[in-house]
């Protein structure tokens, strides 16, 4: 690595971050909101450690919660050996880190489901002009719809359809996951369709000469050659999914990072701004990590290791 490369790959990003932090630290105290001055990076970091402490305290409470239950059950059994006892799940609040996990699980659920729908649909649409013609107006119509518009519809339909006395999943989880699904279907469908439709004529001819069955054709020719485009679609979808989820959680008060941000905004305490900033940074980092994860996966499954992937 020569000096210039070293500078570009290591020093420049570091300087960029440093400069940003400096501007932030100097500029923040100058803006005074009704919740006090805007916190600088140092204060935000303090809030972050505060959130860790809070998380540990909550875990401690959880342990106590289970202990109490066991004691109660023991007393109940001592009084009446036939008493029905059970251990209930912890009911305490979800900490910041719990909300992160919830958000990631939700986004992945919606995203994976969307993938299972979008990729086959995209393949069929890419292979058949007729299916494409039938699907295209719908895709064009629904693609630009904001998640916030889907949310009320999803909520109403889920509460009407998903009726169960002992639901496996929370309605709020299903609402969020479905909203994510609806919003991240489209880029994957479109890119898969394009990828499949643009398979080289030569390869199609090979398939014809070999008289490959439809299924073998899809498996051996279509899928591998459309993989780069499918992944382009999936990465776009995942990016959208993550943004949509945060918005949906804020609006519908579904558990997750979005709710954390909204709750903190509503709390209006002197810590709130700092905590929201922690959340913003974490949301960004997770979004970045999700994208990198997809990239790694793409490298893993793509045959073309030499292609420049960014």
């Amino acid at each position: 690595m020569n000096t210039k490369q070293l500078f570009q790959t290591l020093v420049a990003p570091f300087l960029g971050i440093l400069l940003f932090l400096a501007i932030w630290q100097i500029g923040a105290p100058k803006i005074v909101t009704s919740l006090g001055a805007v916190p600088g990076p140092v204060q935000v970091f303090e809030q972050f450690t505060g959130l860790i402490d809070e998380h540990q305290a909550a875990r401690q409470k959880e342990v106590e919660f289970y202990q109490r239950q066991e004691e109660r059950n023991a007393t109940a059994l001592a009084e009446d050996p036939n008493a029905e006892v059970s251990i209930r799940p912890y009911t305490g609040k979800a900490t910041f880190f719990d909300q992160i996990v919830t958000s990631i699980v939700t986004v992945m659920t919606g995203f994976v489901l969307a993938g299972f729908i979008a990729i086959p649909l995209g393949i069929v649409a890419g292979l058949s002009q007729t299916v494409y013609a039938a699907l295209n107006p719908l895709i064009q119509l629904f693609k630009p719809v904001s998640p916030l518009a889907w949310l009320p519809i999803v909520t109403m339909i889920v509460s009407a359809v998903y009726v169960s006395d002992d639901p496996t999943f929370d309605k709020s989880f299903i609402n969020s996951a479905l909203t994510v699904l609806l919003c991240c279907l489209w880029p994957t469908i479109i890119n898969t369709t394009v990828g499949v439709a643009n398979i080289s004529k030569d390869l199609q001819n090979v398939s014809k000469v070999l008289r490959l069955s439809w299924w073998t054709h899809v498996r051996k020719i279509v899928l591998p050659s459309a993989i780069p485009m499918i992944f382009t679609g999936l990465r776009l979808s995942l990016g959208i999914a993550w943004m949509v989820l945060i918005a949906a959680e804020m609006l519908a008060q579904n558990p997750g990072l979005g709710k954390f941000v909204w709750d903190e905004f509503q709390n209006g305490s002197s810590n709130s701004l700092g905590r929201i900033m922690v959340a913003v940074i974490v949301i960004g980092l997770i979004g970045f990590a999700l994208d990198r994860g997809m990239l790694l996966l793409q490298r893993q499954v793509s045959w073309d290791k030499s292609a420049a992937l960014r």
Binding site: S200, L203, N205, D304
Partner: peptide, 8 residues
Amino acid sequence: QNHSLLPW
């Protein structure tokens, strides 16, 4: 004409 091998 141009080999048409499956690149993967």
